[in-house]
Design a protein around this nucleic acid. Sequence first.
DNA 1: AGCATAGGCAAGCGTTCACTTGCATGTCAA
DNA 2: TTGACATGCAAGTGAACGCTTGCCTATGCT
Lengths: 93, 93
Amino acid sequence: MSDVYKALADETRRLLLDELMQRDEQTLFELCTKLAMHHDLTPTRQAVSQHLDVLEAAGLVRTERRGRYKLHTINTAPLAQIAERWPTRRTRT
Amino acid sequence: MSDVYKALADETRRLLLDELMQRDEQTLFELCTKLAMHHDLTPTRQAVSQHLDVLEAAGLVRTERRGRYKLHTINTAPLAQIAERWPTRRTRT
DNA sequence: AGCATAGGCAAGCGTTCACTTGCATGTCAA
DNA sequence: TTGACATGCAAGTGAACGCTTGCCTATGCT
């Protein structure tokens, strides 16, 4: 779980998760394009690739090779555990 | 919210939140002691103080001065927003 | 085969971060 | 008032981080 928190610390990685929420199974180039179009971010392809590596190592992204394409899919499971660790205590009634 | 994610990136800060979940209104020294007792961590007082500053800046900790004591209390509200940003999609039925 | 496309590897660079050290401020009790 | 206690401020250091650059591998199409 330590890797999950570190993965979320970067804004670009959070935006990548946002884009994957919109649609699963996106390639590196698709995600690069959307960062530029939706968020005016123009990091290099390698930078985005490294971000995706971090997300995958944290278990937040699953990948699948299909021919020369590598498809990325979000996995929200680790995120649910964050809210569970520090649950909002019930207001005394 | 960006500060919230960065605040959570450090393990010591997450443990501080854990301790504040156990009991609110703890002083800097109390938290230092608990890090040592419960987690075998012995950072200096200043290091812990800086961590608490980060947590406060992120809105995850509220403080109140009472005489020479500064009491720290957790605020879980920002944490709930994390799970809301990337909700687990319902499995197709 | 030849070429374009999609992605991978690795070194280098500047910044941020966590931490320590040293000193200063403020509060309370005797 | 004096001393002990709780906290604050600031500079310095080493490591981690995000990013770029340059080159390499692999797949698919004509």
